[in-house]
Design a protein around this nucleic acid. Structure first.
Length: 548
RNA sequence: UGGGGUAUAGCCAAGUGGUAAGGCAUGAGGCUCUGACCCUCAGAUGCGUAGGUUCAAAUCCUACUGCCCCAGCCA
C-alpha cells in the first residue's frame, strides 16, 4: 500500500513538501446505516494507510446527520469491523458533535446574505431546479431580508414549523451549470429524535454543509471520498470559504472498487435480510466484511487484495478470483492442510488386509515445518475424488488415476487401478486397486514415479460432512434484468450443499455449520470460533460447480 | 443536446517530453508425496481516434469518439 504509488500520495507529498500542510489528517466518514463491505476497505486503507505513512492521523467519524436512517447498532459494528481490519482511529467522532457549530456557521451565512429560508415545498424546489441543460428559477423567497431569514431560521430551530415546511438554502446561483450549486438545501426540518443529540434539534444539516464543516473543525487536511462527489467539490470549497472556517480542508476523489458479479449495495443487503433471503449482514454470501469473515477471508487477504488493485480516479471492476488469490497468499504458510473428499468414489485395495488400519504421518503444512504434523488413517477401503479418476488416460498430461495406472495416495502408498466397477447405468461406483507396500510414504522409495499424487480419506474412519459452496446472492445487474423485481435477480447457485467426507482429525471441527471458499482445488472452511482457517488438500472440481 | 470527470494488454495499474514498471488472469515449459506452492519463458512496434509541435510524445497542442457522474428536504 504505502510502497506503491498513487495520485493521492503524490498530492500529499507535494502538500507536505510545499509546506501547505505540516501533518496529514484524514477521516473515514461512514454513515451508520449499515455494516461495512469490501468496497469500504479501499476507503479505509486510503485514509488510514496514507495518513500513517506520512506520520499523520485518521479519525473515524460517523456521518450521522440524518436520524431517520441511522442506528446505534451500526456504530458499534463499524468500529468492530475497522478494528478487525487492524486499524485504530485517532478519534472516534460524530457529525452530530458539531451541530452547534454548523448551526452557528449557517447563521453567519445568513448574515452575509448567503443563505435564506425557503418556504417552497420539496416538489416546488425540485421543479424549479432546472434540468441538466437549463438553469433553474429563483425561489420567490430568495430575497428575504437578513432579519427575516434570521428570525425564520431561529424559529425553524425552535420547532415552530412542521417537517418540510421550510428549509434553509444557500444563495449561490440558480443558473449554475453545476446543479449542486443551484441554491442547495443546507438544513431541513426533521422532528425526529437523534440517536446522540436526542431531542435537542429538529433541524438537521445536509451532507453538503455538514461535511466540509466537520472536516474543517477536525483539522482534516485531505478529505478523501469517492468520485461521485466530485461535482460537490465546488460547494465543499464554497462552504469552507463562506463559513470562514479557519482551517481549509481539501476534498480529493478516487474511484470506487467493485468486484465482478458482486452487488455492493446497502439497499440490496437490507432488502435481502428483510425478505429472509440473507440471514443477516454476516451472511457469507454477502460481500460485507462480516460475511467475508465468516466465509474465511482474513483481514490481511482483503488488504493485500485492495492494495494490489491500486487506486486511481477510475471506478474499477476486479474479478473475484483475485481476492481468492490473495487469501491463499495469506493462508498458504499459516494454515494446516487436511484431507477431504467432496464427491467420493470408493476404492478397495484388494491386497490390503481386511480390518487393518495404519496411521500415516502427515505434515500439517509442507511449506511450514513449524506447524507440525498429524496422523491420518489408511486402510483397505478409501474414498478419492471422482474427478481424480478417468477410465482411460486422455493424454500424458493426466496426472491422476486411470485404469492400469499407478498413482500415489498422498502420504500413503502407490496404488494401481485394476478394475472398474459400474452400476447398471454405466456409472463408475467403485475401483479395485492394489497397493505396493514398498512405496510407503517416508520410506524413501524411488524405484519408479507415480502418475501423480492424489488425496484420500480412509472409509471406515472418515467423517461425513456437509460442505457448502457459496456464490454471490444476487446476480449482476444487467440491462436485461435491471428492471426485474429483486426476487428474479437472486442467484440460484448462491448456495450448493454437498455431502462428503473429511479425515477423522477434524472430528470436532464444526464443518457442517461453517463456510468456505474455493480456489484452484483448495477448499477453505471458516471458523469464527477458532482463529485457524482450515485448508483442505486438493479439493477439485468445485470451481466448475461454482457458477455465477 | 449543460457541466464535471475519465481513456495505457482480458482485469487492475505505474508512467508528468527521452524511447511502455508491476500484479491478477492466460499460454508454454520445469519441479513436486497437493495439477497447489515454487521456478523459467511468452506477452501492448503500442498508450481511445485523427492531426499537429519536437531531434524525440502515453506524456505538450487541436479536434473528435467512447464510458462514468450530477436535476434527494440521502450520504
Amino acid at each position: 500500500m504505502a510502497e506503491t504509488s498513487n495520485f493521492i500520495k503524490t498530492i500529499m507529498e507535494n502538500d507536505l513538501k510545499a509546506g501547505r500542510v505540516s501533518k496529514i489528517v484524514t477521516r473515514f466518514p461512514p454513515e451508520p446505516n449499515a455494516y461495512l463491505h469490501i468496497g469500504h476497505v479501499r476507503a479505509i486503507m486510503t485514509d488510514f494507510d496514507l495518513a500513517d505513512f506520512y506520520g499523520g492521523t485518521t479519525n473515524l467519524r460517523f456521518d450521522d446527520t440524518n436520524p431517520t436512517k441511522e442506528g446505534e447498532e451500526f456504530v458499534q459494528g463499524i468500529q468492530d469491523d475497522i478494528a478487525w481490519l487492524g486499524y485504530k482511529p485517532e478519534h472516534v467522532c460524530f457529525g452530530s458533535d458539531y451541530f452547534d457549530e454548523t448551526y452557528k456557521r449557517c447563521i453567519l451565512l445568513i448574515k452575509k446574505g448567503l443563505a435564506y429560508v425557503d418556504d417552497q415545498s420539496a416538489e416546488e424546489i425540485s421543479a424549479t431546479r432546472g434540468t441538466l441543460t437549463e438553469g433553474g428559477k429563483d425561489s420567490p423567497w430568495r430575497n428575504r431580508t437578513i432579519e427575516e431569514n434570521l428570525d425564520l431560521f431561529t424559529r425553524m430551530k425552535n420547532g415552530e414549523f412542521k417537517d418540510g415546511e421550510k428549509v434553509l438554502r444557500a444563495k449561490i446561483d440558480m443558473k449554475s451549470p453545476n446543479i449542486n450549486m443551484r441554491d442547495p438545501v443546507l438544513y431541513r426540518i426533521l422532528h425526529v429524535s437523534h440517536q446522540h443529540t436526542k431531542d435537542k434539534w429538529c433541524i438537521y444539516p445536509m451532507y453538503d454543509i455538514a461535511h466540509p464543516l466537520q472536516d474543517s473543525i477536525e483539522g482534516v487536511t485531505h478529505s478523501l471520498c469517492t468520485i461521485e462527489f466530485e461535482n460537490h467539490r465546488p460547494l465543499y470549497d464554497w462552504c469552507i470559504r463562506e463559513c470562514e472556517m479557519p482551517h481549509v480542508s481539501h476534498q480529493i476523489e478516487f474511484g470506487k472498487l467493485s468486484i465482478t458479479h458482486v452487488i455492493m449495495s446497502k439497499r440490496y443487503f437490507k432488502l435481502m435480510i428483510e425478505k429472509g433471503v440473507a440471514s443477516g449482514f454476516d451472511d457469507p454470501r454477502l460481500p460485507t466484511l462480516r460475511g467475508l469473515r465468516r466465509r474465511g477471508y482474513t483481514p490481511e487477504a482483503l488488504k493485500t487484495f485492495v492494495a494490489d488493485t491500486g487506486l486511481s480516479r477510475i471506478n474499477s471492476e476486479t474479478p473475484y478470483e483475485k481476492l481468492d488469490y490473495f487469501l491463499m497468499e495469506d493462508l498458504k504458510l499459516k494454515t494446516n492442510r487436511y484431507n477431504a473428499v467432496i464427491h467420493p468414489l470408493k476404492v478397495v485395495i484388494t491386497n490390503y488386509p481386511e480390518g487393518q488400519i495404519e496411521y500415516m504421518d502427515v505434515p500439517n503444512n509442507v511449506e511450514n515445518e513449524t506447524l507440525g504434523s498429524h496422523k491420518i488413517p489408511f486402510g483397505r477401503e478409501v474414498y478419492i475424488e471422482k474427478a481424480d479418476f478417468i477410465e482411460t488416460m486422455p493424454n500424458r498430461k493426466w496426472k491422476r488415476l486411470a485404469k492400469d495406472v499407478e498413482v500415489r495416495l498422498m502420504h500413503a502408498y502407490f496404488i494401481k487401478c485394476n478394475e472398474v466397477i459400474k452400476d447398471k447405468n454405466g456409472e463408475i461406483i467403485e475401483l479395485r486397486c492394489t497397493y505396493d507396500p514398498a512405496t510407503k510414504s517416508g520410506s524413501g522409495f524411488e524405484g519408479r514415479k507415480p502418475n501423480g499424487n492424489i488425496h484420500f480419506v480412509e472409509a471406515s474412519t472418515a467423517i461425513s460432512a456437509e460442505f457448502r459452496l457459496f456464490g454471490p446472492l444476487l446476480q449482476d445487474e444487467t440491462p436485461e434484468n435491471k428492471d426485474l423485481p429483486f426476487e428474479e435477480k437472486l442467484n440460484p447457485n448462491s448456495l450448493i450443499k454437498v455431502m462428503g467426507y473429511v479425515e477423522p482429525t477434524l472430528k470436532d471441527a464444526p464443518i457442517e455449520s461453517k463456510y468456505q471458499f474455493v480456489r484452484n482445488g483448495y477448499y477453505c472452511v471458516d471458523t469464527d470460533s477458532s482463529p485457524a482457517k482450515l485448508v483442505f488438500n486438493r479439493i477439485c472440481e468445485l470451481k466448475s460447480s461454482f457458477k455465477f
